[in-house]
């Protein structure tokens, strides 16, 4: 009698074990599937873009399109150079304006600000980062555009309406700086206090410690913050679309109107997508964007890994 109860228990336990192991195995399939889904999605997007770009690439020379300044889809002129140059201008200029400020603010928050002030400053940074970029565009239309058009551009001897590459760069710098600050603060605060104590312990000042030790140790993190910011500016759509002036021409000054790769798609896709070859051209623009952004992320990862291995922080 007792034996049969015991063997019943054992059966139940082994049944249960079998079910538990089945669930375990199935869930690993599920989770793997979810992971592969992300990869599949990326491949699908790239393949679609490539496939739909082929008609354009079959008909026109790639080199010629990349170096031609003439963009006139109705005349079958597909020169991408103005948009490429515009994109590079905007990305470079906003990083030039945003990066130093981001690093300074990050140093202030991570190393100097104390107590309540630190909480207040960093929560404002987070709030800024959470504002939808279209709001930045709207406010910029009301404030930055007149300022640049009426004061700044005339002051440096350029004539401008206020819409254009400089305005876009300035506003994009404001949009991405909070992101770069948050990420940089994180990498500074992740450094062990022993690092600060070691440097201060041989008589270095706070600034010397920050400059020669902390910025170097947090370098990989700050570097990737800057590259992520760069990626955001590169792919930014709404702010440039609102503020760049939308003229596909080679910019002759920083205050000139122009076009970036994303705004080229946005401004033309409504009316021109119905013409197959134009559609193909715009999709090719999208492909270029994806490839460049991917390259940047990949490069950032490689450099970061290298630096991190070198200093081990």
């Amino acid at each position: 009698m007792e034996e049969s109860i015991e063997s019943g228990d054992a059966d139940r336990r082994s049944d249960r074990l079998g079910r538990r192991l089945l669930v375990e195995r199935l869930s690993s399939y599920w989770l793997r599937g979810a992971g592969y889904f992300a990869i599949g999605l990326f491949c699908l997007i790239v393949l679609t873009l490539v496939h739909r770009s082929l008609p354009l690439l079959a008909e026109y020379s790639l080199v010629q399109m990349l170096t031609s300044a003439n963009w006139d889809p109705s005349q079958n002129q597909f020169g991408f150079l103005p948009a490429i140059v515009g994109t590079i201008y905007v990305a470079a200029l906003s990083m030039l304006m945003g990066t130093p400020i981001a690093i300074l603010v990050a140093i202030y928050i991570a190393e100097y600000a104390e107590g309540r002030l630190k909480v207040i400053v960093s929560s404002f940074i987070d709030v800024l980062a959470a504002i939808p970029s279209v709001i930045f565009g709207l406010v910029a239309l009301l404030v930055v555009v007149p300022f640049v058009g009426n004061y700044l551009a005339p002051a440096v001897g350029a004539s401008a309406t206020g819409l254009g590459i400089f305005t876009v760069s300035l506003v994009m710098a404001i949009v991405v700086t909070p992101f770069m600050i948050s990420l940089s603060v994180e990498s500074l605060e992740a450094l062990p206090d022993e690092l600060r104590e070691s440097s201060l312990g041989v008589g270095a000042t706070k600034l010397e410690t920050i400059r020669s030790v902390l910025l170097r140790a947090a370098g990989p993190g700050i570097f990737s913050a800057v590259l992520l910011g760069f990626g955001r500016v590169f792919g930014a759509t709404i702010v440039p679309a609102m503020l760049i002036g939308g003229q596909t021409q080679m910019p002759d000054s920083l205050f000139a109107t122009g076009q970036t790769l994303p705004t080229l798609i946005v401004s033309d896709f409504g009316e021109l997508m119905s013409i197959p070859i134009t559609q193909s051209a715009l999709i090719f623009v999208g492909l270029m964007l994806v490839v460049v952004v991917w390259f940047f992320n990949f490069g950032a990862m490689l450099v970061q890994r290298r630096l991190r291995r070198r200093w081990q922080y």
């Binding site: 062990p192 022993e194 690092l195 104590e197 070691s198 440097s199 201060l200 312990g201 041989v202 008589g203 020669s212 030790v213 170097r216 140790a217 370098g219 200093w311 081990q312 922080y313």
Partner: peptide, 14 residues
Amino acid sequence: RIGYVPQTPTPLPL
């Protein structure tokens, strides 16, 4: 004048 060596071996990133 009063040097300090922390508990964790801490190389400066140099």
